[in-house]
């Protein structure tokens, strides 16, 4: 008897799976049926919609989820002209290569890709580009010039600005903890490099601890707890993103050592803005994801307009002075 009910459960699961598969199938069919109906006058030919494919590198951190959400919003504004599909590489280069292949198999007219790492994704992106499919590289680039347009901000520049800020706030001396992102990832390397280019010139600023917390809040909190155990006084924290800055802040708060501590983050997350308003964090840098620009640029390319090879997104330093201007309680991120 029990065995039979388990079987029913499994059949139920299978049905759900099939429904999901067929549902996605249906949506497409409907669209195909819809276009040839000659309701409009024959002079206005129903235009074929372009299919844009987006190969995202991961969907577990808020910044990247936000990137996709905003991209979908931008697509929505042009939904008469474009269809949109995306894939999630789950932080795995191999999976992203496979994803790009699948998008091409689906017949995309333009590829937007945020490569997880440059070298591994270069051959496949080159291949796509040489097939005549335009490619926009977003946030991170490939190593050759086989792409139509790169859109991104400079992590090196942000690192330098954060370094300058740290020096200024500390008056050129103090004990600093650096909480890094994912080891070996380009943003981590550049955010660290830019920071040290500035800070290392000041002998009296000592970076006593440099640890990775993978851009996540909880690991950052633990690192900061340990750092507070090991060092009597910590004057500054430089975290490679706001999530980790907030983690460090929580650790410092828990032992009452957050007063006067200079905490700097990157990304421009809503919560970090709030912390800046309360005076708990010193600064963050809006690291734009460029999703809206990507869709706008994609449309230009598809319409045959010329676009620059490199679009540099501006980064903004957000401090107590200007935070009100950027805080949006309804933002996704």
């Amino acid at each position: 008897m029990r065995k039979r009910s388990l079987l029913w459960l499994l059949v139920g699961i299978l049905v759900i799976v099939l429904v999901v598969l067929f549902y996605t199938f249906r949506v497409e069919e409907k669209k195909e049926e819809g276009t040839p109906t000659p309701a409009v006058s024959e002079a206005v030919k129903p235009q074929k919609k372009w299919l844009i494919g987006f190969a995202q590198s991961t969907m577990i951190d808020p910044w990247r989820i936000n990137m996709l959400m905003q991209m979908k919003d931008a697509v929505e504004e042009h939904k008469e002209e474009i269809d949109f599909i995306y894939t999630d590489a789950k932080n795995d280069n191999n999976k992203q290569i496979a994803d790009v292949q699948d998008l091409v198999t689906r017949g995309i007219d333009l590829l937007i890709i945020s490569p997880r790492e440059a070298e591994p994704l270069t051959p496949i992106v080159s291949e796509v580009y040489r097939k005549g499919i335009p490619v926009i590289t977003l946030d991170r680039n490939i190593v050759t010039t086989d792409y139509t347009c790169f859109i991104g901000a400079s992590n090196l520049e942000i690192g330098r600005k954060a370094g300058e800020r740290m020096v200024e706030e500390l008056g050129g001396k103090g004990v600093v903890v650096e909480i890094e992102g994912i080891l070996g990832a380009t943003p981590t390397i550049e955010r660290s490099k830019g920071f040290h280019e500035v800070v290392d010139k000041y002998k009296e600023i000592k970076v006593v601890l440099k640890r990775p917390a993978d851009y996540l809040r909880e690991p950052a909190r633990k690192i900061m707890e340990d750092a507070l155990q090991a060092h009597k006084k910590i004057d500054g924290v430089y975290a490679h993103n706001d999530e980790m800055a907030l983690g460090a802040l929580a650790a410092a708060k828990a032992v009452g050592k957050d007063k006067g501590m200079v905490i700097i983050g990157i990304d421009g997350q809503k919560e970090a803005f709030k912390a800046i308003m309360r005076g708990e964090m010193s600064a963050t840098y809006i690291y734009p994801n460029g999703s809206r620009e990507a869709i706008e640029t994609a449309l230009k390319i598809l319409k045959g307009e010329k676009v620059p090879k490199h679009i540099s997104l501006p980064t903004v330093e957000v401090t107590k002075e200007n935070v009100e201007k950027y805080y949006d309680p309804n933002a996704y991120f």
């Binding site: 499994l10 699961i13 799976v17 999901v20 996605t24 969907m59």
Partner: peptide
């Protein structure tokens, strides 16, 4: 993995479907 990508199934649904298939296949 391939067919879910080709059908443009959202990433979170993909995870659920994959789990369901594993249960079914193992049973």
């Amino acid at each position: 993995d391939n067919i879910l990508n080709l059908k443009g199934v959202g990433t979170y649904i993909q995870e659920m479907v994959r789990g369901a298939i594993i249960i079914f296949a193992v049973y």
